[in-house]
Nucleic acid binder design. Sequence first.
DNA 1: GATGAATGAGGTTTCATTCAT
DNA 2: GATGAATGAAACCTCATTCAT
Lengths: 206, 206, 206, 206
Amino acid sequence: MFIHYDGPMPQRSPQHHEERRDHILAAALRVFSRDGFQAASMADIIAEAQVSAGSIYRYFPSKADLAAAAGKSVFLPASAPLRQIIESGEVVRPTEAMGRLFAGLIERATAGDTDYTALTVDAWAYAQRDEGLRTELAEVYNGIRNNLHILVTRWRDAGHLPADADTWGLTIALAAVMPGLLLQRQMLGTVDAPAALTAFAVHAGI
Amino acid sequence: MFIHYDGPMPQRSPQHHEERRDHILAAALRVFSRDGFQAASMADIIAEAQVSAGSIYRYFPSKADLAAAAGKSVFLPASAPLRQIIESGEVVRPTEAMGRLFAGLIERATAGDTDYTALTVDAWAYAQRDEGLRTELAEVYNGIRNNLHILVTRWRDAGHLPADADTWGLTIALAAVMPGLLLQRQMLGTVDAPAALTAFAVHAGI
Amino acid sequence: MFIHYDGPMPQRSPQHHEERRDHILAAALRVFSRDGFQAASMADIIAEAQVSAGSIYRYFPSKADLAAAAGKSVFLPASAPLRQIIESGEVVRPTEAMGRLFAGLIERATAGDTDYTALTVDAWAYAQRDEGLRTELAEVYNGIRNNLHILVTRWRDAGHLPADADTWGLTIALAAVMPGLLLQRQMLGTVDAPAALTAFAVHAGI
Amino acid sequence: MFIHYDGPMPQRSPQHHEERRDHILAAALRVFSRDGFQAASMADIIAEAQVSAGSIYRYFPSKADLAAAAGKSVFLPASAPLRQIIESGEVVRPTEAMGRLFAGLIERATAGDTDYTALTVDAWAYAQRDEGLRTELAEVYNGIRNNLHILVTRWRDAGHLPADADTWGLTIALAAVMPGLLLQRQMLGTVDAPAALTAFAVHAGI
DNA sequence: GATGAATGAGGTTTCATTCAT
DNA sequence: GATGAATGAAACCTCATTCAT
């Protein structure tokens, strides 16, 4: 049994542990996205990760933990594009920012052999009965909303919206559009993101 | 030479069959909404329906069929409020119509012992790997969009929108908001529907 | 529900009962020969016979009874050809008689939609654990042996065998050949009956 | 950079696997011979083997596989006595060889707690609807016939049969006798093997 | 730390039979 | 007599998890 490792050479470093964990989680994500959280069996994941049954339980104490970790890793990176824009100080039309966020999601979804879009929808269902994952998800979505609100405010302050515009209302409406677009992609195969966002931009002014 | 048997023929009304089927399906919906499609076991449903194990299979040949029927019955009634408005000829602000639709969903969700909102999110996940249910869902959502477009057009024709307004873009944007609001309710417990729809109404004019 | 009946016209004659029973048994034979005694389900037989579930139990109290009746009806007609020869007084070479018997079996096997050869092998297995069927089978095979012995004796008396020939030994040897030939047909698809019987005839003189 | 794990590696001998498999198969043979292939339940076999339900499926993926393996192990050793005689170079009267073969079958049948004779008849029935087992059986029976033909030829060459004797015909006739004798034992309880084979020997000269 | 064979509760489904109509 | 919906025990098989090596 050989394991690839390219850091320094401690016999059993925490780094080694984390690498192994990531390796297993990546395999789990592939299997989960292919078969769904519940249909995926530990045996499938074990085979995909090329790890022994006993070993996997050293890194994830149960299938539920593995699923939770998978859900977490699905949501976490979602808000990166917005943070990036905020940190750059760029003044961007909020719909444009959301367009980039959505494009990023889709790109990540189709890049490798893990379908993150499918996983996201699965995670929604799973989170309904898993408080930990639900909290995780809530935080991520609140983060997105807060970031989006910053952009909306900035857009108003740049003079593109009236001074008394309902920035929170606009933020909420815009943020609420994302799951719908994502779901549309999964169910219908088509994506109307540009049309929806353009209409937003033209009529609501954001 | 033929003999016709005309002794007492057992009366088996087709109505009875449908009643029994509905009874089982209702029980399944309760269990599915409580535990999720896959975590729910046939034994749970059998217990909830107070039916024998063998009996349930006369009405639904497999658990998958039961799940499909459950999914179907979740989606089907969703679009009723819009159809009602259209048929009444009423000229309603589209955001107002969507507000009613959402309110209807929430009301139905919390009325009995079947949480239809949870079931809807589960069905999204399930549909990703079940073509039949996916088709069903696609039809229902297309129906909603088409109905909504009728209302948007009517709203424009009533002079509330410029003649060259992008009715389809507005429709898509507005329709895409629903899953997000529904999801928000399930994940965060809060509902920003009024805020979101009001913002829409004020800024986009619909 | 129409039942064909062409005797006189009593409302519920014993004859009607027997006809119905035969109809069911014939259906059972078709299903049993197609799927095997145990793999065949009562539902299959019910469907094949176009009879109601309740009705079939009026004629055969259990599946075992139906199987026993089926086995019985498989063995019974087997010995007819030998009896016919004996009654005709014809002096026939015993191997020739066995050839006719075997030909009769094969012909019956392939005539209709009931494969009696397959049923026979199934019945052997079934009879191992069903005393009634085993007794039935024993009687039929003893009958065949006794009849065959008559033919062998007659053949010796006609001067074709030495006066001190072991007629019982020859009978037993010849009778024992039948199951082997039948089995060969079922397993290998080929039939060496002529070769085997000719060799018998040439070398053993019968 | 690769790290080789060289801690204690669990010893899993392939021998252990085969032993366990044989243990399970032996238990299955006992149960199958007692109750028949289909009436025997996996639960029965599991109990007889004193193995867990899950474990048995590691060695035999399905009941059908277990039945096939059982059938195989029933037929395979059947032809050993003939091969032994051939290899010893001994010139034996073919009927004598068949007598030994039959005696061997009966002895094996009654030695332990597995009735191989019953299993053989069950396997015939089973093989009618299982191509794999049918092929297996065909090969074994062809092997027996070929070996028997060698003995018949050898017997002729030793001057005990005329030079132009139909060796194949005699072989086929003699081989066809075995199933009949076996069946007779199972159905009637008696065995006429000596009588039948002696008659063969005296009259047909083999 | 790592392995994978073993576990056994629990999953879905079938099927011979009964009985109210 | 006839019907077929209902029954429920029992069938085969899976799978998350453990533990001796």
